[in-house]
Amino acid sequence: MKEIKVEIKNEYGLHARPSSLMANLASQFKSDIKVIKEDSEVNCKSIMNLLLLAAGKGVILSIVAAGEDEDKALEALRDLVEIRKFDED
């Protein structure tokens, strides 16, 4: 099990479109992936779960992955959130 911290950097935060990108990306991996914001922990493969985190710009999320491809999954998610910024901005 591995954990990384990522910061939401795009202007509008984790709204519907970014949530769907994140859930679709996470769904491509076999590992169990969770996202934690403060005291709420949700499934990263569910759009609704991600949306309900209501993570705005500047929020730090923990992503926890457990499974055979956990490294790859976390790397891909970090790329999406911090580097590509959900292809927004």
Binding site: Y12, L14, H15, A16, L51, L52, A54, A55, G56, K57
Partner: peptide, 17 residues
Amino acid sequence: SAQELDNKIRSFMKKEK
């Protein structure tokens, strides 16, 4: 519905900020 939910989440995030 999708637009409606998105608008709610966005305005919530804005308030929180």
